[in-house]
Amino acid sequence: MSLQVVTANRLDDGLVVFLTADGGWSENIHDSRVADGKEAAAVLLKEASAPELDVVIVGPYLIDVEQGDGGLVPTKYREVLRTKGPSVRQDLGYQAV
C-alpha cells in the first residue's frame, strides 16, 4: 500500500486543500498528514468527511503520494496538476504567486 493523504476543495474560493496533522486544511501538500496503510487512510478519510466540515470543504478523497527530494509528491498526473493550478493559464493558480 502506498502513502496517502486527503485532498478536497475549499468552499469559499475553490482552491485545493490537504488535511493537516492538526485537523485543519492547508493549500500546501507538504503540510499534509500522511497515512501509511489501508486502516490509517480510512481513518483520515472518515475525519475529513465529518458532517461539520461540509461548510468548509467539498469532495474529500484520498490520493497516493510518495516522498520526493522536496517532500510529498502525488503519484498521479491529475493530482500533480491540482497541486500546481491551471496548466493553461500560468497567470492563475498557485504558479502565479
Rank of each mutant, 00 (worst) to 15 (best):
M1P: 11
S2W: 00
Q4D: 10
Q4G: 04
Q4S: 12
V5P: 07
V5E: 02
V6C: 04
V6A: 06
T7Y: 09
A8M: 04
N9Q: 15
R10C: 02
D12I: 07
D13E: 13
G14H: 14
L15H: 12
V16S: 06
V16F: 05
V17P: 00
F18A: 03
F18D: 01
L19K: 07
T20Q: 13
T20I: 12
T20S: 15
D22I: 03
G24C: 09
G24K: 11
G24P: 09
G24E: 11
G24D: 13
W25Y: 10
N28A: 13
N28G: 12
H30N: 15
D31Q: 10
D31N: 08
D31F: 06
S32M: 03
R33K: 13
R33Q: 12
R33C: 01
V34L: 01
V34E: 01
D36V: 06
K38V: 13
K38L: 11
E39G: 09
A40S: 12
A40K: 08
A41I: 12
A41D: 06
A41M: 11
V43L: 08
L44H: 06
L45T: 10
K46M: 13
K46F: 11
E47G: 08
E47F: 05
A48H: 01
A48Q: 02
A48E: 02
S49Q: 05
S49N: 11
A50Y: 05
P51N: 04
E52V: 04
D54F: 02
D54W: 02
V55A: 14
V56D: 02
V56G: 04
V56C: 04
V56Y: 09
V56I: 10
I57F: 02
I57M: 01
I57G: 02
V58A: 14
G59L: 07
G59N: 08
L62E: 03
I63Y: 01
I63A: 01
I63T: 01
V65L: 00
V65S: 02
E66P: 00
E66S: 01
E66I: 00
E66G: 00
E66N: 02
E66L: 01
E66Y: 00
G68P: 02
G68C: 03
D69V: 01
D69F: 06
D69G: 07
G70C: 05
G70N: 12
G70M: 11
G71L: 02
G71C: 01
L72K: 00
L72F: 04
P74W: 03
P74M: 06
T75E: 09
T75A: 12
K76F: 12
K76S: 14
K76N: 05
Y77N: 11
R78N: 14
R78E: 15
R78T: 11
E79R: 00
V80P: 04
V80E: 08
V80I: 14
L81M: 15
L81P: 04
L81R: 09
T83K: 00
T83Q: 09
T83V: 13
T83P: 04
T83D: 09
K84A: 13
K84Q: 15
G85V: 03
P86Q: 05
P86T: 12
S87C: 11
R89I: 08
Q90I: 05
D91Q: 15
L92I: 05
G93D: 07
Y94G: 08
Y94E: 10
Q95W: 09
A96M: 07
A96F: 07
V97N: 11
